[in-house]
Amino acid sequence: MNWFVKTCAVIIVACSSLAYAGEAQPLAQDPLVETRLNAISENLRCLVCQNETLAASRSDLAEDLRREVRHLIEAGKSDKEIIEFLVSRYGDYVLYNPPFKATTVLLWVGPFALLAGGIIGLIVFLRRRSRQGLVDEEDAEPVLETVVVPAVDKRPTGRWLVLLMLAIIPLGGALVYLKVGNPAALDPARAKAGPDPEVMVARLAAKLEANPNDAQGWQLLARAYLVMNRPADAVKAYNRILPEIKKNPDLMGDYVEALAGSGDMAGARTWINKALQLDAKNPKIIFLAGGLAFEQGNFPEAIRYWEKALKLVEPNSKEAQFIQENIAEAKSRIK
């Protein structure tokens, strides 16, 4: 229904490459890099405050290490190489998930060995006692026996009671886990998917509330909201950095997208005019101005803007193709 809502994701992708056609986008603001940085540092321990992850810690060292990881991501290193980089300096200690090797055998195998030992011990104990119970009743009355299992087990039902208990305990555990636990975490595919973007965005929003002067942070948050199709929230985030926006036509363009997406067409018009005054040769702004005209039903004006934008981008590029599609659409509306 709304041109901006419909083309929102496309605009963001296409327009950012439009706007940055000349220069590389500062990668620290690239949501993809930030997402990978978060996913990696979520599983690493901060060396200074050792019960916090590298993602959560605010210590100086954690910030340095995040910066380092960000550089490595930008340099095109894989997650594995990045983790190796940190392990070679700080040891396995940085991993929340310790690797299986000679020094950690006890850690990984120990609990299972103890469980197996316990079960074997129990079986041996029960067998011996039932045999003794048949041979010598007097002898089969040690102190332990009266405590552990009542005298019922002299009859064959006693063994069944024990087996029943053996079945009930794990089953009960599983049921309790299903009720209060998080069974989704057991699915390795989902566990590896990394943190939920919604959660990460909420976390970023909370961080910014605590540290509202972080203009880059607000910008990142607003962009994330736009990608998530929450333009009203994006507008709120952009409102926190209005002085910043007034200086930067590209940011104005983003702000216009958010305003238009959230239905504030009057606001969008005001800001697009300001942006056009500031930078009349910015293809992204011109493209958006066309979008606004299109949205108001003024198709000839939309076409005029878009044809102007078309001259400013590289011919035959993805952007050019996208603009041509929009022009075609507007032309079909005139007829």
Binding site: L47, V48, D64, L65, R89, Y90
Partner: peptide, 13 residues
């Protein structure tokens, strides 16, 4: 100054 060498040496405290 920027602690880069410190990271190479695994400095944390």
């Amino acid at each position: 100054a920027d602690g880069r060498v410190g990271i190479d040496y695994g400095v944390y405290g």
